[in-house]
Amino acid sequence: MRDLAALTESERRALMRTDWGFVHQDSARGLRMNVSAGGNIGERLMALGDRHYGRIRRCAEQWLERVEIAPDRLDDRPSTYSGGMRQRLQIARNLVTSPRLVFMDEPTGGLDVSVQARLLDLIRGLIADMGLAVVLVTHDLSVARLLSNRILVMKQGEVVESGLTDRVLDDPQAPYTQLLVSSVLAA
């Protein structure tokens, strides 16, 4: 166990590139928009010292396929990608170094509903396959239900209730959680 607050800058940077990942809600913050998709995926590998161009490129191709992006888009910039593709590229860019812990800030926020389901299924599959631990922030209770085992309900910076996700959503105890759950429109 290490205290994060006591890490040096360089140790923290190393952690961010290896064991951790961060998927931003706004893909422009999580990607280099003017670098090719392959470059976006390869960046973490290069930061870890990989210098073999062919190997990095092959790895990037494999990851594009894994997140359901056609490999012939490898040399295109993410600025030419749709919103859903950008999120999937962001996920590939983060997972290429097999991190153990990934933070996701509203990963499906702002996406078309038709794209959300596919992304959720992809995230679920990757979590299961790679044994990832994920800390996810969402306002969408159905996303929380589908992706998470545990949930912490927060109000004004404090955790008002926590527990097994389906227990908290189906039998909420805290007044705020009851308000939250009862305010959702059933689709």
């Binding site: 527990g163 389906d166 227990r167 189906d170």
Partner: peptide, 9 residues
């Protein structure tokens, strides 16, 4: 049933 499954507290 839901309590036994842990779905209700």
């Amino acid at each position: 049933l839901k309590i036994v499954f842990g779905n209700y507290l």
